[in-house]
Amino acid sequence: MTLREIAELLDAKILVGGDHLGIEVKTAFSADLMSDVLAFAKPGSIMITGLTNPQIVRIASIVDNSAILVVRGKIPPRETLALAEELDIPVLSTKYILFETSGRLYASGIVGCVRKIEGPESIVPL
């Protein structure tokens, strides 16, 4: 799915990165805890979160998320959006809750970065 299709599916506002809507997305990771994103997110995936502080942008930059999708209608503060502009990471905001957002994307073919945790050894952040 492209970011544009994701935005349409979720009736999302594009807050940053309107010129990157052609990006192809295959995987996603939903979390409200940043260490979990660092542990499990894969490069190119989108981060789905209810957090809005600038940390989400730095984390996205570290794990090479292709975009950030903020749920529950939250609009990140200006400092978060400014950092996203600077680091060139698209930010979208949808009014759907995390469950609905993830479910709709999954039903459209987006899969998680990992399916389940097999044991401590399986966590390889690559």
Partner: peptide, 26 residues
């Protein structure tokens, strides 16, 4: 994994999963 003494203030910012040191080791 999961052990954390982070307070509510820290948790509200998305930290406190108790995953940090484990991630570092990993």
């Amino acid at each position: 994994q999961g052990y954390s003494t982070a307070n509510d203030h820290i948790r509200a910012m998305g930290f406190g999963a108790g995953m940090g040191l484990f991630n570092i080791k990993n």
